[in-house]
Amino acid sequence: MSEQQFEPSVIAFLCNWCSYAGADLAGTSRIQYPTNLDIIRVMCSGRVNPLFIVNALQQGADGVLVSGCHPGDCHYMEGNFYARRRFTLMNELLNYVGVDAKRFNMSWVSASEGAKWKDVVEEVVENAKEAGPFEQFRRNKINW
């Protein structure tokens, strides 16, 4: 598969209240953006377990996005503050073991930011394309 043809698979964990609504807005506003994303809706970015990211990479994701409300706007007051610490550390860990830094992304997208959502998706997909197919610890690469 050549560089140009590679279409990455990106798993996105979106919080119900902001980012998912933002993506919804992008859709109803007919904003065009790449379709490489598989969205998993969660109630809050603070609900995302770092193991989800490891597991997504194991199961074949080439990139992962976690997106929540802007700091201070969390529906549950402080969920995204915890998420911020957690994924700042997770990002460091993934980097440290040699997973390309472009594979893991986090963003704040509010319910009114359909346009920002498009920018985020474009950047995340572009990042995953640059990083190429993820093979380091994919499950199905292991000989069963």
């Binding site: 770092p50 193991l51 490891v54 597991n55 194991q58 550390l89 997770m90 860990l93 993934l94 073991v97 380091q136 610890f137 994919r138 499950r139 690469k141 292991i142």
Partner: peptide, 25 residues
């Protein structure tokens, strides 16, 4: 079963990442 019992680079890495992360901070 988040991390399978089988020993291969995939599950071992997942194990070590989660072990390390559980000790973050």
């Amino acid at each position: 079963s988040w991390i399978y019992r089988s020993t291969n680079i995939s599950e071992n890495t997942a194990f070590h990442l989660s072990r390390a992360f559980h000790l973050a901070g």
